[in-house]
Design a protein around this nucleic acid. Structure first.
Lengths: 252, 252
DNA sequence: GCTTGTATGTGCGGTTCCGCACTTATTCAA
DNA sequence: TTGAATAAGTGCGGAACCGCACATACAAGC
């Protein structure tokens, strides 16, 4: 049983990068959780209880405005974690964390997390470095929102999601994508049509298939690559990064 | 001499919030610096050498796109610091830090900073908490860039700057403001006109005077208040926050 | 098959903002 | 006082998106 948790946990790159000794200390406190699409991990202002390390799930950081408008500010899959506010000295954030792609995660309660963090070892180092990459991601979202078109932003968003998946198929309606990008659903429809016409993607009723990874990268703004590079620069020596994972197009 | 540095240093709220003992340990490594308008503290990708604690200067975090477009992602004055990447395990960021309002700062080299940070005391706690508020600020910039108008964003930006100043006059051309907001200079001209017509500000050739603080707050989007609240929530118990500093309108 | 619900497509007027060209106002120094 | 530099104002066509209304397509259950 606990062995299953361990196997699951090691699918998360941050946990997998820990020295054996540190992982062993954390292991008793790790817990596997199932995260169906739409699950709200924590709500804006909620007191957070756990830090989540996604293994196969993808989790989105979403800001909800007073008038109901929404915009995604960041995203984390098996390359990251959700709940950095906890070890940064807070117990809540101004955003909502919601499951964007069904899957699993491993979580740990605030207390044992903090204990290990305060030891000041590799765990602390990795968590802080990851948080720095998250800041880069959020920064780039800010820039992208101001200076780039919906078309470009959509490409970037598809690429980020693709990176966290082990398939070329993304289960996601245009309505939901619109919520993430902070634009109208119709805007996504039009942008997605253009990408389909170019042969970069194919989509049918809630499922998007990536057909041409390189083409998507070319159509995206610089923001995607900048965040990737920064992640590799900060965590590449601890976490193996396979940039060619999907170099060949095709459907799985 | 060293006394001057100390007096200067204590104008920064983070440094002032440190226990005497911790401040005393840092003091020998603190250095006062003069920061004229436009000084580039560090460039995107540069190896950073110091963390800066602004005392009277205001420093802007600016992203510069490949095509030359710019957008501000965050800002720090005497309520914060510049160079969080250093203690987050990085040595550079993807943004530029540039002096937006002439003034002083106190800085400390990476090494003594890290030493004190690794002690895990109040210094570490404050730095991490501040970094969390910075993330909120950047997140809100992302949201604001997507969902709010230039008019609203300008109000927010003026308020943020006003908070760091001890005067109602802000020395800043519309051209520079446009660079920060990531819009055209003409866009700022038009937005500023509206604010002037409403009697909220007055401006002449490079100087903006805030006339009606409450009016500006009303005209700004929710983003301003959210970031303020989060700062107070995370650091309010260490740092005195005077929300009514400028409640009365007028020129100084 | 038929119905119902959900997902997507399309058109249209309106707003915001851009890019560009040009004018006007203010400041400073010769 | 005159000229040059800088800052700000204006006008206009166009692009990107929005908000809304409605049309179509697909999926699943009866």
């Amino acid at each position: 049983m606990s062995d299953t948790v361990k196997n699951n946990a090691l699918k998360n790159h941050l946990l997998a990068a820990l020295p054996k000794e540190e992982f062993a200390r954390l292991e008793p406190d790790l817990e596997s959780v199932d995260l169906p699409l739409g699950t709200v991990i924590y709500e804006s202002g909620d007191r957070m209880t756990h830090v989540y390390f996604p293994t196969t799930a993808i989790i989105s950081l979403l800001y909800i405005m007073e008038n109901g408008g929404t915009a995604e500010i960041g995203i984390a899959g098996n390359n990251g974690l959700i709940g950095s506010a906890l070890f940064m000295g807070s117990k809540s954030t101004t955003s909502r964390a919601v499951v964007q792609s069904t899957g699993d995660a491993v979580r740990i309660k605030a207390k044992p997390l903090q204990t290990e963090f305060d030891r000041g070892g590799q765990f602390q180092k990795l968590l802080l470095r990851y948080t720095q990459t998250l800041m880069t991601q959020i920064s780039q979202t800010a820039v992208c929102n101001r200076l780039h078109t919906v078309d470009q932003h959509l490409c970037r968003w598809l690429l980020i999601n693709h990176d966290q998946l082990d398939t070329n198929k993304l289960v996601m309606t245009q309505e939901l994508i619109a919520n993430m990008l902070g634009v109208r659903r119709e805007g996504v429809t039009v942008a997605a049509q253009k990408l389909q016409e170019k042969g970069l993607i194919k989509y049918v009723r809630g499922t998007i298939t990536m057909l041409d990874r390189k083409g998507l990268e070319a159509a995206a703004c610089e923001c995607y690559q900048i965040v990737m590079d920064e992640y590799e620069r900060l965590l590449g020596k601890y976490i193996p990064i396979n940039r060619n994972k999907y170099e060949t197009a095709g459907n799985k």
